[in-house]
Design a protein around this nucleic acid. Sequence first.
DNA 1: ACTCTTACGATTGCATGCAATGTAAGAGAT
DNA 2: ATCTCTTACATTGCATGCAATCGTAAGAGT
Lengths: 233, 233
Amino acid sequence: MNPTPLLEASGARTATAQVHEAIKQRILDGVYRPLEFVREAAVAKELEVSRTPVREALRELVSEGWLEAIPHQGARVTEWTEKDAREVFELRLVLEPMAVGLACRHIDAATLAHLDDLASRMETLTETPLDGAGHSELASLNHEFHRLLIQASDNQRLAQILESVVRTSIIRRNFASYDRSALKRSMQHHREMLIAIGAGNAAWAENVMRAHLLAARVLHVSVDSTAASASPP
Amino acid sequence: MNPTPLLEASGARTATAQVHEAIKQRILDGVYRPLEFVREAAVAKELEVSRTPVREALRELVSEGWLEAIPHQGARVTEWTEKDAREVFELRLVLEPMAVGLACRHIDAATLAHLDDLASRMETLTETPLDGAGHSELASLNHEFHRLLIQASDNQRLAQILESVVRTSIIRRNFASYDRSALKRSMQHHREMLIAIGAGNAAWAENVMRAHLLAARVLHVSVDSTAASASPP
DNA sequence: ACTCTTACGATTGCATGCAATGTAAGAGAT
DNA sequence: ATCTCTTACATTGCATGCAATCGTAAGAGT
């Protein structure tokens, strides 16, 4: 076996890429808390690399919004405020419907089948009471469902933007706060979206997505009823 | 005076930040052409710094989409295709109306006055025939107008996304292809938006913005009439 | 007791040398 | 002539040492 297995697990990529992943994971896992500084030397020692790849990984993470850089002082985990949650939801509420709308034009049968499979597996999961592992698996499947849908929009920039916007906001947000009826409704939204997409009905799909997101919002944030909707294009 | 004034012009920031700006400017100016590799050693020698700040600047530019990294081979300027132009326009067509809609709720009198001033100066410019410098100034004012409007949306993420999406697409796109009537129409759009915002009428402002962008598109890209509009929220 | 100054420690910022890797040119065989 | 293997070179990837800078806490002065 390898004598230094600390980073080797993630394939044969560059050290910078591996450090990048490692730090991101620790942020997601809550090992590095908001406003806490991530010190170059400490990470380097812990992962058994020099400070150089750590520095480069930190700069990348700053560009992606995971950390904020303070000159001559270091990089610290970005804080997550109510305003951040609001901003992200405003964006998702516009961008995800846009994505499914575009997907209606571009999607192929194989992707649709894959989405169908994911929806089925989620439905199966929700038929029995869920433990912790079940919630985790459901969250994973759900994330994959949305990711695949967004990829099908055939707009690479949109996909990248949504990926970064959504992932930084998740931080292990799961379905623990969903009651039984909310869960079933969420699964039905997925189904309905696939039917709308299969029918090529963009408007239908977009509105189901908006309903899906708004329904989720009530469960996650203290809803401010700024329900002032935007106007039709 | 300083004996090495090559980079000192841009204030007293870090070398990395200055190299970052320098390379970005050269991409915008066309010194570095699409698909051309930007070599660490060459930039370092030219700007009289070591390879370290160059490496860090390159990584940042990759994260921002100006360059694409190829492992062990370097970073090259991203190519700009018709598909890229389409993607960016699809995004702007959704995000900029969203921004002005939000701005209707959050804007303050001072910002509105500033926007009014910018609109006036652009109108003055368009009253006489334009030379190259005039086009450049108009483009600059126009960019500032849109930037300020987007800031007024009070959604920091939206502003950052639009900034990156729009700026990488500009590459010195100016108003040279605008004829007289198109220019005047564009200026009127600005005015109308400000009036709509002043009246707090989000739907009005959003639709003017969409018209503004669609009118600009016909002048820039070979329009594909995929005028299939999205549905109302 | 409070404020301003100053010196120290910790941390990032930058330079440079060496190792790893990928590319391309050239020799040899078919 | 074409294909393959080898080898040398150019370039990035990484490690390490030193310099610049910032925060902090101790100490002098009011």
